[in-house]
Amino acid sequence: MPLREYHNQAEKYEYISNQHGGYYRHGFIDHAYLYNLYFPPEEVFERFKNKIHDLVLNYPVAQDALASLMGRIINQKAEHLVIGNGAAELIKIVSGQLAQTLIIPVPSFNEYANAAPKGHVIEFPLEFPSFELDVEKFADHAIKVKADVAVVVSPNNPTSRAIPKFDLVFLAKKLGRHNCRLIIDESFIDFAQDPHLLSMEPEIERYPNIAVLKSMSKAYGICGLRIGYLLTANTELAHEVRQGVHIWNINGFAEEFLRILPDFSDDFIKSCNRVKQDRGKLYKDLKSLLGGTIYAPDANFIFCRLPDGGPDGPEVTKKLFIEHNMYIKHCGGKTMPEADRFIRIAARTNKENSNLVDALVSILGYKEL
């Protein structure tokens, strides 16, 4: 299919800013979508090529076999897992079908609120301007509004901030006493400095009211394969979510990826370390050159408040695309104070990150120190 034709870059921006993917078809530098550029290695694609006829012509396996494959990858019991066509499928089930009253700190990933029926979501504001979660206030409010599902995203999107594990344990305990399930979205946790110290996956049997939800698109760089999972020791919750997925919700390429992924565990760790290094340098460069407030990141992206007196987030995002063919996300649609002054920048390679910083400096009128 030929690329869409545009009369000018402004028209291209208006089109792209209303899309939810397929960016690679349109020829710009994508600092908006949040994924690992260094995984999977080329050998994964070679293995796909060698089996392409079988993968296209045959039915994939169903939920039980998929859960066993994922359990082998993350060292968890298959009966504790539900595999989704991306995390989005599982979010739709949890928010749209299971939760009667869902509470979520904001700003956060919009899909949890978007997937819920109107009037079934309570938004709890993060502390401003730190954007940290006060877990005691959050738990108290969840109990007050009689929420049956609480969601936290750690590291959070768009703030790139992780919630300490002891705070998550506090939430699990307190909400558990009030029959409130706690969904912990850990889609970006592999990019945190010490993910094993933050993750609640090892704690699921100690706290039966929790479930860890994870998109594999981000850390594993497989946005097009669409794989996510929900992990819980709560057999009732696992059963309810399984009832919401259809029998062949995962395609053959995604199944094959799960089969071969254990062979590439070392490559995966190395790729995440490269992302962390690139992200760290981008953070330092933005902090020293950009002005405004640059928040220390725990994920593979940087959350920034633009300085007062200059252009706002939507204006910077548009100028960056039109003048430099680079795309970032502004936070104008997020539920937060001064939303138009915030932007989110995905880390790419060091060279691309450096070019982005230079472009932002030129737009904002700063000069290198």
Rank of each mutant, 00 (worst) to 15 (best):
L3D: 15
Y6R: 04
Y6Q: 14
H7S: 15
E14I: 02
I16L: 08
N18Y: 13
G22N: 02
D30T: 02
E42V: 02
V44Q: 03
F45D: 07
F45L: 07
R47P: 09
L55A: 05
V61W: 02
V61K: 00
A62L: 03
D64A: 08
A65Y: 03
L66S: 01
A67R: 02
N75S: 12
H80G: 01
V82M: 01
V82L: 00
A88K: 03
E89Y: 11
I91H: 07
Q97L: 05
Q100M: 14
I103M: 09
E111Y: 07
E111T: 04
V121M: 00
I122S: 05
E127G: 03
S130A: 07
H141V: 07
I143L: 05
V145F: 06
V151N: 02
I163M: 08
P164Q: 10
L171W: 07
A172W: 04
K174T: 08
L182G: 04
S187H: 04
D190I: 04
Q193W: 11
R206D: 12
P208M: 10
V212W: 09
M216K: 00
S217G: 15
Y220G: 06
G221A: 05
C223W: 12
C223R: 08
I227H: 04
L231T: 03
L231H: 12
A233V: 03
E240R: 13
V241S: 01
G244F: 00
A254R: 04
E255T: 14
L261V: 06
L261E: 15
L261W: 04
F268V: 03
S271V: 14
R274L: 15
K276Q: 12
R279T: 15
K284G: 09
G292S: 07
P297G: 13
F301D: 12
R305T: 10
D308G: 14
E315N: 10
K318Q: 12
K319Q: 15
F321L: 05
N325K: 11
I328Y: 02
R341L: 11
F342D: 03
R344Q: 06
I345Q: 01
R348N: 14
L356F: 03
V361F: 09
L364G: 11
